[in-house]
Structure formats: structure tokens, C-alpha cells
Design a protein around this nucleic acid. Structure first.
Length: 564
RNA sequence: UGGGGGAUGGUCUAAUGGUAAGGCGGCGGACUCUGACUCCGCUUAUCGGGGUUCGAAUCCCUGUCCCCCAGCCA
């Protein structure tokens, strides 16, 4: 990992406690964990929690963490997803070394185990239709009924299963089921289907198979084959643990990993399910999986989030078993924290209005030195051209400012950061009343923004020289949803809570000229505005396009709200 | 209403029979050439009712509320 984690004092979570106990008692010498995504979509911030957990445990215990694709349903899976997942895990800063696996690698072994199950009398080929199986399963309160095919002979089952494999039967006509207990109060144990016929080519095994194993059967065996010590998953699989254990207890497997469940991540003002994210992409509400408003890993990356920020976030939120909602501000804070330390400061005027310094020589240009980071001198400094005509932020001027307004107004003095102190003398307006020019005078004794006479100036504002400014496109991103929980009301479609202002494009912001050749993907702080990143897709050489990652904390905006 | 989980300030996480702690948020203040950063202060909690105990968030009983499960998805 390139960045050391924040040493936040957080007690270890219940999973790490279990692991520490297992290590201490000698149950295990080391840890083998795994991150097992299904390649049917892009990874999102919720997956990051699991990635940081599993790979983090490996790092902490000198163990290993496998990356295993759970690719047992070829009708939903694609290589493109495999590639994006590998990229995202690497980008987050984790390394699976040579431990890259696919559940599909185990199809032959899984098939052998199925044969074993049949020979044990613990699995049978069932010819009930999908609907019939559902009916036979019973309900939450009533037991199920046994399938009429449940008591076939081992030989017949073997023969039928072979015929399923060779493609003799149609999809849906036959399945292989584990023979457990149709009366079990746990529905997962009512003879679950473990193999189904799917005449679909697989992205890795091609046409080799037309029967594919189900998750519950595959996952535990894959874990056992790989020698996983702790198999960590989310709460909804708690009910599946008895089945996980049944398969491994019934078959003679090399080991029996322990499944431990934890609560998935819920974040306010977003949706997390792959299905809903896919819907946003497919229906064009966002520009793709990597739209900077998406909380996918690729979206966060394009937005400008750093891997360290995401890792710190995953660490800060903790781990437990209760359903919890993490406030979006916690994520936003994590980037602010990281970028505050690492992002160079620059100036960019988002909503420009012209300032003319009447007593400044017409053709004169001065080079003003500006430090790149006020708390980190090692980041050096740069020179900013200063001239008679500048751009400042429209919001930094008010004709009739309220008491606490520390910025420019008629007769008021303000500091131009690293520039001069200027005082507003007059204003030029259009017919419609919008301000076109602000006229000022400057104090030559305040070069660089200093006050040799020691006078205090409340306000310091950012600016760029009009002649030297780099016009650029800036996208102001905000949260995608306006509702804290867009899925809360089942009668209201989550898309009705989309934020209509989640992206505001500014076509001609004015940036300081040093930004001209900023490399795409680089994060900077626009002073007094927020953290921005040169977009990796739309930036051109010499013509960067900026994404707002997150605003700076803005206490002025808060007090302003209170005034109104 | 069967089974499996869960309930600690606004929110997230600790305390593993012995002073209910910390982060985030919020509020107030200090500092400041970013109304940023940093620093300081404040605020608010053990789901209810019984019991065991010198002592209970923790153990027992009981009640309430919330989440998950009836895919040939994972």
C-alpha cells in the first residue's frame, strides 16, 4: 500500500477477535480469506468494505487473500466485468499475488463431489418443474412435501445426472437436488437445487458444460478447496450457513472453513444494489458505470477519490452485525482528510466577474509567488501573473453586504491571495442590473498580500489575471439522490428521488495558467472551493476538464443559511 | 404467524460482571493571507418490565420493535 493508513484508534471488530482467538489457540497458523465477487456488474463502495476487510486481515496476519470469481451463472456474467473488478481491487491498493481463482476452475471437482453426494444417497435428480418445486417447498410456516423423484436409486440418479451433463435434457426439465429435509424450518435445507441445466456458453469454459452448480453448493466447496480459514460474507447468508456446513460435513473435504457474517454497508443518499445501479446506467440517468456521481469504485476513481480515502473510510465505519446507515458526510470527510494533506492548492474562479484596478499600470504584469501547500513547505511554490484586470468570484462581491460578510463591497478592502489589498471604488452594471465590472484601487505597499502596517483584513479572496487565465470546463457534482434513503418507501420508485442538480456544468471557469498542463487524474484544491480532479476521459492536452470531488467545509454557507 | 439475526446519544463503533468511552455530526470559541486546515469547549445513549448480584449494557426470565429467508440468482 502506498499510503499508510490513518492510525485512528478503533478497537478491533468481532471478526478480527475471532481470528485472533483462532490464531492464539492454534486452530489456525495463519489466515486465508477471500473476496468472491460475481462478475455480473461493477464493484461499488459496499464491495470496498468487504475488500478492505478480507485483504486487510491478510495484511495484518501475514496471511493471504484470494480473489475468486464466483462465476457459476453464465447467463449474467461477462469478461468485461472480470477485468473491471481486477482493476478496481488493484487500484484500491490490494494484491492477490498468484491467488487468482474462478469457481469455474472447480467445475470438474464440483462435478466429482456431486457424484459422491449421489453415491452417498444425499442427492437426487428431480424432474419437477420450477413452479412445482416452489409449491412442494411449502411456506415459512408449513413444511414442504417430498418430491416424487426423491427416492430414486443411486444408479438411476447417476445415469440421469450423466444425461443432464451430456445435454440430453432441456433447460428446466431436470435438476440435481441435495436430499436433506423437506420439513426443515430453514427453507434452505428443503432439498436445495445444487445443479441446473443452462445451455449457455460460459465466459471461461465455453461449451464444455451445460449444467452449472448453484451458489450454496459451489461456495463452500470452493472455500474448502482453497483452504480458506475464514469465509466472510454479509448477513443475508446467515440462513445459508447450515447448508454451507451440511455440504462440507457430508462430503469429505480437505478442510471446513468458518463462515462469519457481517452487516453490509448502507450509505445515505445513495442506492447500493447492483440491480439499481445497472438500471441507472441502462436507462441513461448517469453516463455509465464510471459516471463520477456513481458510488462504484470506477465512478469514485473518476470523480477523484483516492484509494487511501476509501480505505480510511472503510476502516472508520467499523464492522458489526446490526443494520446501520453510514452518513454520506463520513465518506466525504474521508476524501477531504486525505486530500487536505496531499493536494496542491491552486486558484480557479468558477463564476467570474471582472475586477479593474484603476491605479495599476495598464501594461504591467507582475509575478507573485504562491505556496502550493500552506502546511507543507516541501510542496514548493509557483508564480502567478498579476495584472490590471482580474477575475474574482461573483459571490465574493456584494453591493449591500450583511454584517458578517468578509469579502468585497463598495468601500471595502479585501486581500487578493498572494496579490495585493484592494478597495472597491465603484461598480459598472448592465441594463438588467447585473454587475459587469468592479472598479478598485490597490495598495502598492501590500505586495504579495502582506500588510507592513500590521492592519488586519478580514477577507482574503482568490483571483486570476484576466489576460492569463485558462478558461476551462468544470463540473460541480453533488449527491445523486436528495432522499436520505431513496429505497425507503416501496411505493415510490427510487428514481423519483434523483437530484436534478447532481451535475452542474460550468463552461468557462477561469483557472490560473499553471493548470494548463495538469495531468488527467490529478487532484488539486481550488482554494476556498473544494477538491477537484482533472477528468481522465474528457481532458485534452492543454485543456483540462475538472470534476469537483467534494467541496471544502463551508461554515460561512451555514451561517448564511441561518441569517436567511 | 416457522426459522435465522439484531436493538448503546442525531449517527457509527467500544466497554467481554467493576467509573458507559471514542469517531463523525451539531452547537460555541480560539487561530488564520483559504469563512479551509488545526486547536479547545459543550451537547445527548444502554428498547420496556421483572430477576440474580455488593455491583448488570453485559447473566436469567418476559415483553416490544427492526432486518433477512419460500430463485433452477449470488
Amino acid at each position: 500500500m502506498e499510503t499508510p493508513e490513518k492510525t485512528a484508534s478503533r478497537p478491533i471488530d468481532f471478526i478480527r477477535q475471532i481470528i485472533a482467538d483462532d490464531l492464539r489457540t492454534g486452530k489456525h497458523r495463519t489466515t486465508v480469506t477471500r473476496f468472491p465477487p460475481e462478475p455480473n456488474g461493477f464493484l461499488h463502495i459496499g464491495h470496498a468494505k468487504s475488500i478492505c476487510l478480507n485483504f486487510g486481515i491478510a495484511l495484518e496476519n501475514n496471511g493471504v487473500c484470494h480473489l475468486r470469481f464466483d462465476d457459476t451463472n453464465p447467463s449474467k456474467e461477462e469478461v468485461a466485468y472480470v477485468e473491471s473488478i481486477m482493476r478496481d481491487v488493484r487500484w484500491l491498493g490490494f494484491d492477490w499475488h498468484d491467488k487468482l481463482f474462478y469457481a469455474s476452475d472447480y467445475f470438474p471437482a464440483l462435478h466429482d463431489y456431486a457424484l459422491q453426494l449421489i453415491r452417498l444417497g444425499k442427492a437426487y435428480v428431480c424432474e419437477l418443474s420450477a413452479e412445482a418445486i416452489r409449491e412442494y417447498r411449502g411456506t415459512l410456516t408449513e413444511p414442504g412435501r417430498e418430491s416424487p423423484w426423491r427416492n430414486r436409486s443411486v444408479e438411476e440418479n447417476l445415469h440421469l445426472f450423466e444425461r443432464m451433463k451430456t445435454g440430453e435434457f432441456e433447460e428446466g426439465s431436470h435438476v440435481l437436488r441435495a436430499k436433506i429435509d423437506m420439513a426443515s424450518p430453514n427453507l434452505n435445507l428443503r432439498d436445495p437445487v445444487i445443479y441446473r441445466i443452462l445451455k449457455v456458453p460460459h465466459h471461461r469454459t465455453g461449451d464444455t458444460w451445460c449444467i452449472y452448480p448453484m451458489y450454496d453448493y459451489t461456495h463452500c466447496l470452493s472455500d474448502a478447496i482453497e483452504g480458506i480459514t475464514h469465509s466472510l460474507c454479509t448477513l443475508e447468508f446467515e440462513d445459508h450457513r447450515p447448508l454451507y456446513d451440511w455440504v462440507l460435513d457430508t462430503l469429505q473435504t480437505p478442510c471446513h472453513p468458518q463462515q462469519i457474517e457481517f452487516a453490509r454497508l448502507n450509505l445515505t443518499f445513495t442506492v447500493m444494489s447492483k440491480r439499481k445501479l445497472l438500471q441507472l446506467v441502462k436507462e441513461g440517468y448517469v453516463d455509465g458505470w464510471d459516471d463520477p456521481r456513481m458510488l462504484t469504485i470506477s465512478g469514485l476513481r473518476r470523480r477523484g477519490y483516492t484509494p487511501a480515502a476509501i480505505r480510511n473510510f472503510c476502516h472508520e465505519i467499523g464492522l458489526g452485525k446490526r443494520e446501520s446507515w453510514i452518513d454520506m458526510t463520513v465518506l466525504e470527510n474521508a476524501v477531504r482528510d486525505d486530500l487536505n494533506a496531499t493536494a496542491p492548492r491552486v486558484m480557479c474562479v468558477l463564476d467570474p466577474v471582472k475586477v479593474v484596478i484603476d491605479n495599476y499600470p495598464e501594461e504591467q504584469v507582475e509575478e507573485m509567488e504562491a505556496v502550493n501547500h500552506p502546511q507543507d513547505p516541501a510542496m514548493g511554490s509557483r508564480m502567478l501573473p498579476f495584472s490590471r484586470e482580474l477575475h474574482i468570484e461573483r459571490a465574493d462581491f456584494m453591493e449591500n453586504p450583511p454584517a458578517k460578510f468578509h469579502r468585497l463591497g463598495p468601500g471595502r478592502e479585501v486581500r487578493l491571495r498572494y496579490g495585493y489589498l484592494i478597495t472597491c471604488t465603484s461598480v459598472v452594471k448592465d441594463e438588467d442590473g447585473t454587475i459587469r465590472e468592479i472598479h478598485c484601487t490597490y495598495d502598492p505597499a501590500t505586495r504579495g498580500g502582506s500588510t507592513p502596517d500590521g492592519r488586519k483584513v478580514k477577507g482574503t479572496i482568490h483571483w486570476v489575471s484576466a489576460r492569463h487565465a485558462l478558461p476551462c470546463q468544470v463540473r460541480l457534482y453533488d449527491r445523486l439522490f436528495v432522499a436520505e434513503n431513496p429505497e425507503a418507501d416501496k411505493d415510490i420508485n427510487f428514481k423519483q428521488h434523483l437530484n436534478p442538480h447532481s451535475r452542474i456544468c460550468i463552461e468557462a471557469a477561469m483557472a490560473e495558467p499553471s493548470l494548463t498542463d495538469l495531468a488527467a487524474g490529478t487532484q488539486v484544491q481550488f482554494e476556498r472551493q473544494g477538491y477537484f480532479c482533472a477528468d481522465t476521459v474528457d481532458s485534452q492536452p492543454g485543456k483540462p476538464v475538472f470534476n469537483r470531488i467534494v467541496t471544502l467545509r463551508d461554515t460561512w454557507a451555514k451561517t448564511q443559511q441561518k441569517i436567511n
